[in-house]
Design a protein around this nucleic acid. Sequence first.
DNA 1: GACTACCAAGCAAGCGCTTGGTTTGTAAAG
DNA 2: CTTTACAAACCAAGCGCTTGCTTGGTAGTC
Lengths: 209, 209
Amino acid sequence: MSQNMTQPSPSHQALIDQGIINAPSSAKGRLLQAAANLFKEKGYERTTVRDLGKAVGIQSGSLFHHYPNKESILRAVMEETILLNTELMKEALSQSKKPEDKVLALIQCELESVLGETGAAMTVLVYEWRSLNEESQQHILTLRGIYEDLWISALSEAKEAGSVVIDPFVLRRLLTGALSWTVNWYRQEGDMTVDQLAQMTLSLAIKPA
Amino acid sequence: MSQNMTQPSPSHQALIDQGIINAPSSAKGRLLQAAANLFKEKGYERTTVRDLGKAVGIQSGSLFHHYPNKESILRAVMEETILLNTELMKEALSQSKKPEDKVLALIQCELESVLGETGAAMTVLVYEWRSLNEESQQHILTLRGIYEDLWISALSEAKEAGSVVIDPFVLRRLLTGALSWTVNWYRQEGDMTVDQLAQMTLSLAIKPA
DNA sequence: GACTACCAAGCAAGCGCTTGGTTTGTAAAG
DNA sequence: CTTTACAAACCAAGCGCTTGCTTGGTAGTC
Protein backbone atom coordinates (compact mmCIF):
# COMPACT_ATOMS: atom_id res chain seq x y z
CA MET A 1 0.00 0.00 0.00
CA SER A 2 2.71 2.50 0.93
CA GLN A 3 4.83 3.80 -1.90
CA ASN A 4 8.48 2.84 -2.01
CA MET A 5 10.82 5.83 -2.04
CA THR A 6 14.20 4.22 -2.61
CA GLN A 7 16.19 5.52 -5.55
CA PRO A 8 16.29 3.34 -8.64
CA SER A 9 19.70 1.95 -9.58
CA PRO A 10 21.67 3.50 -12.48
CA SER A 11 20.61 0.68 -14.80
CA HIS A 12 17.01 1.16 -13.78
CA GLN A 13 17.15 4.91 -14.39
CA ALA A 14 18.81 4.38 -17.76
CA LEU A 15 15.97 2.12 -18.91
CA ILE A 16 13.45 4.71 -17.78
CA ASP A 17 15.28 7.52 -19.61
CA GLN A 18 15.36 5.45 -22.79
CA GLY A 19 11.61 5.01 -22.50
CA ILE A 20 11.95 1.24 -22.37
CA ILE A 21 10.20 0.90 -19.04
CA ASN A 22 7.81 3.21 -17.18
CA ALA A 23 8.93 5.21 -14.15
CA PRO A 24 7.41 3.83 -10.93
CA SER A 25 5.90 7.26 -10.22
CA SER A 26 4.11 7.56 -13.57
CA ALA A 27 0.50 6.54 -14.04
CA LYS A 28 1.44 3.49 -16.08
CA GLY A 29 4.23 2.63 -13.68
CA ARG A 30 1.92 2.66 -10.69
CA LEU A 31 -0.60 0.56 -12.55
CA LEU A 32 2.02 -2.03 -13.39
CA GLN A 33 3.25 -2.14 -9.81
CA ALA A 34 -0.28 -2.60 -8.50
CA ALA A 35 -0.96 -5.21 -11.16
CA ALA A 36 2.18 -7.14 -10.22
CA ASN A 37 1.13 -7.22 -6.58
CA LEU A 38 -2.41 -8.32 -7.33
CA PHE A 39 -1.35 -10.90 -9.91
CA LYS A 40 1.12 -12.33 -7.45
CA GLU A 41 -1.28 -12.48 -4.54
CA LYS A 42 -4.47 -13.59 -6.26
CA GLY A 43 -3.22 -14.88 -9.58
CA TYR A 44 -3.90 -13.28 -12.94
CA GLU A 45 -7.23 -14.99 -13.58
CA ARG A 46 -8.66 -14.20 -10.17
CA THR A 47 -7.70 -10.56 -10.49
CA THR A 48 -10.45 -8.58 -12.21
CA VAL A 49 -10.07 -5.32 -14.08
CA ARG A 50 -12.24 -3.86 -11.32
CA ASP A 51 -9.63 -4.93 -8.77
CA LEU A 52 -6.95 -3.27 -10.86
CA GLY A 53 -8.93 -0.07 -11.19
CA LYS A 54 -9.62 0.12 -7.47
CA ALA A 55 -5.93 -0.46 -6.68
CA VAL A 56 -4.87 2.62 -8.65
CA GLY A 57 -7.96 4.67 -7.88
CA ILE A 58 -9.66 4.80 -11.28
CA GLN A 59 -12.67 3.16 -12.92
CA SER A 60 -12.10 -0.23 -14.45
CA GLY A 61 -13.01 1.06 -17.90
CA SER A 62 -10.32 3.73 -17.71
CA LEU A 63 -7.64 1.05 -17.69
CA PHE A 64 -8.31 0.49 -21.37
CA HIS A 65 -7.14 3.99 -22.11
CA HIS A 66 -3.64 2.86 -21.13
CA TYR A 67 -3.67 -0.74 -22.32
CA PRO A 68 -5.81 -2.34 -25.02
CA ASN A 69 -6.76 -5.32 -22.87
CA LYS A 70 -6.07 -7.09 -19.61
CA GLU A 71 -3.54 -9.49 -21.05
CA SER A 72 -1.31 -6.69 -22.31
CA ILE A 73 -1.04 -5.45 -18.73
CA LEU A 74 0.28 -8.86 -17.70
CA ARG A 75 2.64 -8.82 -20.65
CA ALA A 76 3.94 -5.36 -19.73
CA VAL A 77 4.56 -6.46 -16.14
CA MET A 78 6.60 -9.40 -17.39
CA GLU A 79 8.44 -7.52 -20.09
CA GLU A 80 9.54 -4.69 -17.82
CA THR A 81 10.76 -6.96 -15.07
CA ILE A 82 12.76 -9.23 -17.36
CA LEU A 83 14.39 -6.25 -19.09
CA LEU A 84 15.21 -4.57 -15.80
CA ASN A 85 16.63 -7.67 -14.19
CA THR A 86 18.74 -8.50 -17.22
CA GLU A 87 20.37 -5.11 -16.87
CA LEU A 88 20.84 -5.48 -13.12
CA MET A 89 22.48 -8.84 -13.73
CA LYS A 90 24.91 -7.47 -16.31
CA GLU A 91 25.79 -4.73 -13.85
CA ALA A 92 26.46 -7.27 -11.09
CA LEU A 93 28.46 -9.54 -13.39
CA SER A 94 30.76 -6.74 -14.52
CA GLN A 95 32.14 -6.47 -11.00
CA SER A 96 33.31 -10.06 -10.80
CA LYS A 97 36.25 -11.82 -12.42
CA LYS A 98 36.57 -15.32 -10.99
CA PRO A 99 33.91 -17.83 -12.13
CA GLU A 100 32.87 -18.61 -8.56
CA ASP A 101 32.34 -14.91 -7.88
CA LYS A 102 30.23 -14.60 -10.99
CA VAL A 103 28.02 -17.46 -9.95
CA LEU A 104 27.60 -15.95 -6.50
CA ALA A 105 26.77 -12.59 -8.06
CA LEU A 106 24.10 -14.23 -10.22
CA ILE A 107 22.58 -16.04 -7.26
CA GLN A 108 22.53 -12.87 -5.17
CA CYS A 109 21.07 -10.90 -8.03
CA GLU A 110 18.30 -13.36 -8.73
CA LEU A 111 17.45 -13.70 -5.05
CA GLU A 112 17.16 -9.95 -4.71
CA SER A 113 14.97 -9.82 -7.80
CA VAL A 114 12.67 -12.43 -6.38
CA LEU A 115 12.65 -11.30 -2.76
CA GLY A 116 13.09 -7.54 -3.16
CA GLU A 117 11.17 -4.69 -4.72
CA THR A 118 10.61 -6.38 -8.07
CA GLY A 119 9.64 -9.60 -6.34
CA ALA A 120 5.97 -9.48 -7.19
CA ALA A 121 6.67 -8.94 -10.88
CA MET A 122 9.29 -11.69 -10.90
CA THR A 123 6.88 -14.12 -9.30
CA VAL A 124 4.29 -13.24 -11.93
CA LEU A 125 6.91 -13.77 -14.62
CA VAL A 126 7.64 -17.24 -13.34
CA TYR A 127 4.19 -18.51 -12.45
CA GLU A 128 1.71 -16.76 -14.78
CA TRP A 129 3.16 -17.24 -18.24
CA ARG A 130 0.38 -19.69 -19.14
CA SER A 131 -2.06 -16.80 -19.16
CA LEU A 132 -0.29 -15.15 -22.07
CA ASN A 133 -1.34 -15.89 -25.64
CA GLU A 134 1.10 -17.76 -27.84
CA GLU A 135 2.60 -14.65 -29.42
CA SER A 136 3.25 -12.95 -26.09
CA GLN A 137 4.72 -16.15 -24.69
CA GLN A 138 7.16 -16.27 -27.57
CA HIS A 139 8.07 -12.64 -27.04
CA ILE A 140 8.79 -13.09 -23.32
CA LEU A 141 10.66 -16.31 -24.05
CA THR A 142 13.01 -14.44 -26.36
CA LEU A 143 13.76 -11.83 -23.71
CA ARG A 144 14.26 -14.55 -21.15
CA GLY A 145 16.74 -16.24 -23.46
CA ILE A 146 19.12 -13.31 -23.13
CA TYR A 147 18.86 -13.50 -19.37
CA GLU A 148 19.46 -17.23 -19.32
CA ASP A 149 22.52 -16.96 -21.55
CA LEU A 150 24.22 -14.92 -18.84
CA TRP A 151 23.67 -17.78 -16.43
CA ILE A 152 24.77 -20.51 -18.78
CA SER A 153 28.04 -18.87 -19.73
CA ALA A 154 28.92 -18.17 -16.10
CA LEU A 155 28.16 -21.75 -15.07
CA SER A 156 30.10 -23.09 -18.05
CA GLU A 157 33.13 -21.07 -17.02
CA ALA A 158 32.83 -22.44 -13.51
CA LYS A 159 32.63 -25.96 -14.89
CA GLU A 160 35.78 -25.49 -16.94
CA ALA A 161 37.46 -24.19 -13.79
CA GLY A 162 36.45 -27.40 -12.04
CA SER A 163 34.12 -25.95 -9.42
CA VAL A 164 30.95 -27.23 -11.05
CA VAL A 165 30.53 -30.95 -11.66
CA ILE A 166 27.16 -31.43 -13.33
CA ASP A 167 25.92 -30.17 -16.69
CA PRO A 168 25.45 -26.36 -16.59
CA PHE A 169 22.03 -26.55 -18.23
CA VAL A 170 20.73 -29.01 -15.66
CA LEU A 171 22.32 -27.05 -12.84
CA ARG A 172 20.76 -23.82 -14.05
CA ARG A 173 17.34 -25.41 -14.19
CA LEU A 174 17.65 -26.84 -10.71
CA LEU A 175 18.75 -23.43 -9.47
CA THR A 176 15.88 -21.71 -11.27
CA GLY A 177 13.43 -23.80 -9.31
CA ALA A 178 15.26 -23.49 -6.00
CA LEU A 179 15.65 -19.72 -6.25
CA SER A 180 12.19 -18.86 -7.55
CA TRP A 181 10.59 -21.05 -4.90
CA THR A 182 12.12 -18.93 -2.14
CA VAL A 183 9.30 -16.46 -2.64
CA ASN A 184 7.04 -19.03 -1.02
CA TRP A 185 8.96 -19.37 2.22
CA TYR A 186 11.71 -16.80 2.77
CA ARG A 187 10.86 -13.90 5.11
CA GLN A 188 13.09 -10.87 5.59
CA GLU A 189 12.03 -10.75 9.24
CA GLY A 190 13.69 -14.08 9.99
CA ASP A 191 17.25 -14.50 11.21
CA MET A 192 18.77 -15.38 7.84
CA THR A 193 19.84 -12.61 5.48
CA VAL A 194 19.47 -12.83 1.72
CA ASP A 195 23.26 -12.89 1.46
CA GLN A 196 23.48 -15.84 3.80
CA LEU A 197 20.87 -17.65 1.74
CA ALA A 198 22.87 -16.86 -1.39
CA GLN A 199 25.98 -18.31 0.21
CA MET A 200 24.15 -21.50 1.14
CA THR A 201 22.82 -21.87 -2.37
CA LEU A 202 26.31 -21.32 -3.75
CA SER A 203 27.62 -24.07 -1.50
CA LEU A 204 25.22 -26.46 -3.18
CA ALA A 205 26.03 -25.35 -6.71
CA ILE A 206 29.82 -25.42 -6.57
CA LYS A 207 32.44 -27.41 -4.77
CA PRO A 208 35.43 -25.50 -3.38
CA ALA A 209 38.53 -25.75 -5.57
CA MET B 1 -6.34 -38.87 -23.63
CA SER B 2 -5.28 -42.56 -23.52
CA GLN B 3 -5.88 -44.37 -20.28
CA ASN B 4 -2.93 -45.66 -18.32
CA MET B 5 -3.07 -49.39 -17.66
CA THR B 6 -0.15 -49.94 -15.28
CA GLN B 7 -0.94 -51.66 -12.01
CA PRO B 8 -1.12 -49.48 -8.92
CA SER B 9 1.54 -50.13 -6.28
CA PRO B 10 0.68 -52.02 -3.06
CA SER B 11 0.44 -48.76 -1.11
CA HIS B 12 -1.82 -47.31 -3.76
CA GLN B 13 -4.10 -50.35 -3.72
CA ALA B 14 -4.23 -50.28 0.08
CA LEU B 15 -5.47 -46.69 0.09
CA ILE B 16 -8.12 -47.59 -2.47
CA ASP B 17 -9.28 -50.59 -0.43
CA GLN B 18 -9.55 -48.44 2.68
CA GLY B 19 -11.77 -46.05 0.73
CA ILE B 20 -9.36 -43.18 1.33
CA ILE B 21 -8.80 -42.48 -2.35
CA ASN B 22 -10.85 -43.35 -5.43
CA ALA B 23 -9.80 -46.10 -7.83
CA PRO B 24 -8.57 -44.64 -11.13
CA SER B 25 -11.17 -46.74 -12.96
CA SER B 26 -14.14 -45.45 -10.95
CA ALA B 27 -16.25 -42.53 -12.10
CA LYS B 28 -14.86 -40.24 -9.44
CA GLY B 29 -11.34 -41.46 -10.09
CA ARG B 30 -11.54 -40.71 -13.77
CA LEU B 31 -12.97 -37.29 -13.04
CA LEU B 32 -10.11 -36.48 -10.69
CA GLN B 33 -7.54 -37.68 -13.20
CA ALA B 34 -9.07 -35.55 -15.94
CA ALA B 35 -9.33 -32.60 -13.57
CA ALA B 36 -5.67 -32.92 -12.62
CA ASN B 37 -4.64 -32.88 -16.26
CA LEU B 38 -6.80 -29.90 -17.13
CA PHE B 39 -5.84 -27.96 -14.01
CA LYS B 40 -2.19 -28.56 -14.76
CA GLU B 41 -2.39 -27.56 -18.40
CA LYS B 42 -4.75 -24.60 -18.25
CA GLY B 43 -4.72 -23.73 -14.58
CA TYR B 44 -7.67 -24.10 -12.23
CA GLU B 45 -9.30 -20.76 -13.00
CA ARG B 46 -9.11 -21.16 -16.76
CA THR B 47 -10.64 -24.63 -16.57
CA THR B 48 -14.44 -24.45 -16.68
CA VAL B 49 -16.87 -27.00 -15.36
CA ARG B 50 -17.87 -27.47 -19.01
CA ASP B 51 -14.27 -28.44 -19.80
CA LEU B 52 -14.35 -30.94 -16.96
CA GLY B 53 -17.64 -32.41 -18.08
CA LYS B 54 -16.48 -32.80 -21.65
CA ALA B 55 -13.26 -34.50 -20.50
CA VAL B 56 -15.19 -37.27 -18.73
CA GLY B 57 -18.10 -37.37 -21.17
CA ILE B 58 -20.92 -35.99 -19.06
CA GLN B 59 -22.84 -32.73 -18.84
CA SER B 60 -21.27 -30.01 -16.73
CA GLY B 61 -24.23 -29.97 -14.38
CA SER B 62 -23.80 -33.67 -13.63
CA LEU B 63 -20.47 -32.96 -11.97
CA PHE B 64 -22.33 -31.52 -9.03
CA HIS B 65 -23.86 -34.88 -8.32
CA HIS B 66 -20.36 -36.07 -7.36
CA TYR B 67 -18.92 -32.94 -5.82
CA PRO B 68 -20.75 -29.99 -4.26
CA ASN B 69 -18.74 -27.39 -6.14
CA LYS B 70 -15.75 -26.86 -8.38
CA GLU B 71 -13.36 -26.05 -5.58
CA SER B 72 -13.98 -29.37 -3.84
CA ILE B 73 -12.79 -31.11 -7.02
CA LEU B 74 -9.53 -29.24 -6.78
CA ARG B 75 -9.31 -30.08 -3.10
CA ALA B 76 -9.92 -33.77 -3.80
CA VAL B 77 -7.18 -33.81 -6.45
CA MET B 78 -4.74 -32.33 -3.97
CA GLU B 79 -5.81 -34.45 -1.03
CA GLU B 80 -5.56 -37.74 -2.91
CA THR B 81 -2.17 -37.01 -4.38
CA ILE B 82 -0.61 -35.91 -1.11
CA LEU B 83 -1.97 -38.96 0.70
CA LEU B 84 -0.81 -41.31 -2.02
CA ASN B 85 2.65 -39.83 -2.29
CA THR B 86 3.13 -39.84 1.46
CA GLU B 87 2.51 -43.58 1.41
CA LEU B 88 4.80 -44.13 -1.57
CA MET B 89 7.50 -42.21 0.24
CA LYS B 90 7.20 -44.26 3.41
CA GLU B 91 7.44 -47.40 1.27
CA ALA B 92 10.60 -46.14 -0.43
CA LEU B 93 12.15 -45.03 2.86
CA SER B 94 11.64 -48.40 4.50
CA GLN B 95 14.07 -49.96 2.05
CA SER B 96 16.98 -47.71 2.98
CA LYS B 97 19.21 -47.66 6.03
CA LYS B 98 22.04 -45.21 5.46
CA PRO B 99 21.09 -41.52 5.62
CA GLU B 100 22.51 -40.86 2.13
CA ASP B 101 20.39 -43.68 0.71
CA LYS B 102 17.31 -42.28 2.40
CA VAL B 103 17.88 -38.86 0.86
CA LEU B 104 18.38 -40.42 -2.56
CA ALA B 105 15.19 -42.44 -2.10
CA LEU B 106 13.28 -39.28 -1.23
CA ILE B 107 14.63 -37.42 -4.24
CA GLN B 108 13.81 -40.32 -6.57
CA CYS B 109 10.37 -40.65 -5.08
CA GLU B 110 9.52 -36.99 -5.40
CA LEU B 111 10.85 -36.82 -8.94
CA GLU B 112 8.73 -39.78 -9.93
CA SER B 113 5.71 -38.19 -8.29
CA VAL B 114 6.26 -34.99 -10.22
CA LEU B 115 7.31 -36.47 -13.55
CA GLY B 116 5.33 -39.73 -13.57
CA GLU B 117 1.70 -40.76 -13.53
CA THR B 118 0.68 -38.54 -10.62
CA GLY B 119 2.63 -35.65 -12.11
CA ALA B 120 -0.36 -33.59 -13.13
CA ALA B 121 -1.90 -33.82 -9.67
CA MET B 122 1.43 -33.03 -8.00
CA THR B 123 1.86 -29.96 -10.17
CA VAL B 124 -1.63 -28.82 -9.24
CA LEU B 125 -0.81 -29.40 -5.59
CA VAL B 126 2.25 -27.17 -5.83
CA TYR B 127 0.99 -24.37 -8.03
CA GLU B 128 -2.76 -24.05 -7.47
CA TRP B 129 -3.14 -23.91 -3.71
CA ARG B 130 -4.07 -20.22 -3.88
CA SER B 131 -7.36 -21.21 -5.45
CA LEU B 132 -8.45 -23.06 -2.32
CA ASN B 133 -10.40 -21.28 0.38
CA GLU B 134 -8.72 -20.76 3.73
CA GLU B 135 -10.18 -23.85 5.35
CA SER B 136 -9.12 -26.15 2.51
CA GLN B 137 -5.67 -24.60 2.47
CA GLN B 138 -5.30 -25.38 6.15
CA HIS B 139 -6.45 -28.94 5.57
CA ILE B 140 -3.97 -29.58 2.77
CA LEU B 141 -1.23 -27.88 4.75
CA THR B 142 -1.76 -30.33 7.59
CA LEU B 143 -1.47 -33.32 5.27
CA ARG B 144 1.61 -31.79 3.69
CA GLY B 145 3.16 -31.43 7.11
CA ILE B 146 3.30 -35.20 7.51
CA TYR B 147 4.99 -35.51 4.14
CA GLU B 148 7.51 -32.80 4.95
CA ASP B 149 8.40 -34.38 8.28
CA LEU B 150 9.69 -37.42 6.43
CA TRP B 151 12.05 -35.17 4.50
CA ILE B 152 13.22 -33.18 7.48
CA SER B 153 14.09 -36.20 9.59
CA ALA B 154 16.02 -37.84 6.75
CA LEU B 155 17.97 -34.65 6.04
CA SER B 156 18.65 -34.16 9.75
CA GLU B 157 20.08 -37.68 9.97
CA ALA B 158 22.28 -36.93 7.00
CA LYS B 159 23.46 -33.74 8.64
CA GLU B 160 24.41 -35.56 11.83
CA ALA B 161 26.29 -38.06 9.71
CA GLY B 162 28.22 -35.13 8.20
CA SER B 163 27.05 -35.44 4.59
CA VAL B 164 24.82 -32.37 4.72
CA VAL B 165 26.34 -29.02 5.65
CA ILE B 166 23.51 -26.48 5.58
CA ASP B 167 20.38 -26.30 7.71
CA PRO B 168 17.98 -29.16 6.81
CA PHE B 169 14.98 -26.85 6.65
CA VAL B 170 16.67 -24.53 4.19
CA LEU B 171 17.97 -27.45 2.18
CA ARG B 172 14.55 -29.02 1.99
CA ARG B 173 13.03 -25.78 0.75
CA LEU B 174 15.69 -25.34 -1.90
CA LEU B 175 15.11 -28.93 -2.99
CA THR B 176 11.34 -28.45 -3.05
CA GLY B 177 11.77 -25.69 -5.57
CA ALA B 178 14.39 -27.48 -7.64
CA LEU B 179 12.42 -30.74 -7.82
CA SER B 180 8.97 -29.30 -8.46
CA TRP B 181 10.34 -27.03 -11.17
CA THR B 182 11.51 -30.06 -13.17
CA VAL B 183 7.96 -30.41 -14.45
CA ASN B 184 8.62 -27.31 -16.53
CA TRP B 185 11.64 -28.61 -18.37
CA TYR B 186 12.36 -32.33 -17.95
CA ARG B 187 11.24 -34.57 -20.83
CA GLN B 188 11.30 -38.36 -20.68
CA GLU B 189 12.22 -38.43 -24.36
CA GLY B 190 15.57 -36.76 -23.70
CA ASP B 191 18.80 -38.61 -23.03
CA MET B 192 18.75 -38.21 -19.26
CA THR B 193 16.83 -40.69 -17.13
CA VAL B 194 14.92 -39.72 -14.00
CA ASP B 195 17.43 -41.75 -11.98
CA GLN B 196 20.34 -39.81 -13.45
CA LEU B 197 18.59 -36.58 -12.62
CA ALA B 198 18.04 -37.84 -9.08
CA GLN B 199 21.74 -38.64 -8.78
CA MET B 200 22.70 -35.17 -9.96
CA THR B 201 20.35 -33.57 -7.47
CA LEU B 202 21.79 -35.74 -4.72
CA SER B 203 25.28 -34.60 -5.63
CA LEU B 204 24.18 -31.04 -4.94
CA ALA B 205 22.45 -31.85 -1.66
CA ILE B 206 25.14 -33.92 0.01
CA LYS B 207 28.91 -34.03 -0.01
CA PRO B 208 30.56 -37.47 -0.10
CA ALA B 209 31.76 -38.67 3.29
C1' DG C 1 -39.71 -48.56 -5.28
C1' DA C 2 -35.98 -46.38 -3.72
C1' DC C 3 -31.40 -45.06 -5.13
C1' DT C 4 -27.67 -43.69 -8.11
C1' DA C 5 -26.19 -41.49 -12.16
C1' DC C 6 -27.17 -38.75 -15.43
C1' DC C 7 -29.46 -35.03 -19.06
C1' DA C 8 -31.59 -30.67 -20.82
C1' DA C 9 -32.40 -26.22 -19.88
C1' DG C 10 -31.50 -22.14 -17.91
C1' DC C 11 -30.67 -18.56 -14.04
C1' DA C 12 -28.10 -15.00 -11.50
C1' DA C 13 -23.81 -13.06 -11.07
C1' DG C 14 -19.52 -11.59 -12.60
C1' DC C 15 -16.47 -11.03 -16.36
C1' DG C 16 -13.68 -8.13 -19.99
C1' DC C 17 -14.45 -4.47 -22.58
C1' DT C 18 -17.08 -0.45 -25.16
C1' DT C 19 -19.30 3.81 -25.49
C1' DG C 20 -20.33 8.76 -25.16
C1' DG C 21 -19.41 12.39 -22.62
C1' DT C 22 -16.72 15.24 -18.92
C1' DT C 23 -12.61 16.94 -16.54
C1' DT C 24 -7.80 18.23 -16.48
C1' DG C 25 -3.28 19.58 -18.01
C1' DT C 26 -0.64 22.29 -21.43
C1' DA C 27 0.69 25.65 -24.43
C1' DA C 28 0.13 28.79 -28.13
C1' DA C 29 -2.68 33.10 -29.36
C1' DG C 30 -4.62 37.39 -28.13
C1' DC D 1 -2.40 37.52 -17.57
C1' DT D 2 -6.17 35.78 -19.85
C1' DT D 3 -8.35 33.21 -23.49
C1' DT D 4 -8.77 29.54 -26.65
C1' DA D 5 -7.83 25.13 -28.42
C1' DC D 6 -6.95 20.36 -28.07
C1' DA D 7 -5.47 16.07 -26.54
C1' DA D 8 -4.85 13.03 -22.74
C1' DA D 9 -7.01 11.08 -18.68
C1' DC D 10 -10.85 9.74 -16.71
C1' DC D 11 -16.10 8.67 -15.36
C1' DA D 12 -20.80 6.54 -15.52
C1' DA D 13 -23.32 3.27 -17.53
C1' DG D 14 -24.02 -0.84 -19.44
C1' DC D 15 -23.60 -4.60 -23.26
C1' DG D 16 -22.76 -9.25 -24.55
C1' DC D 17 -20.93 -13.22 -22.97
C1' DT D 18 -19.24 -16.85 -19.84
C1' DT D 19 -19.18 -18.57 -15.44
C1' DG D 20 -20.47 -21.84 -11.50
C1' DC D 21 -24.33 -23.88 -10.18
C1' DT D 22 -29.63 -25.24 -9.81
C1' DT D 23 -33.72 -27.40 -11.13
C1' DG D 24 -36.98 -30.86 -12.62
C1' DG D 25 -37.14 -34.83 -14.78
C1' DT D 26 -35.52 -39.67 -16.83
C1' DA D 27 -33.05 -44.36 -17.41
C1' DG D 28 -31.05 -48.08 -15.37
C1' DT D 29 -30.01 -51.15 -11.16
C1' DC D 30 -30.40 -53.67 -6.82
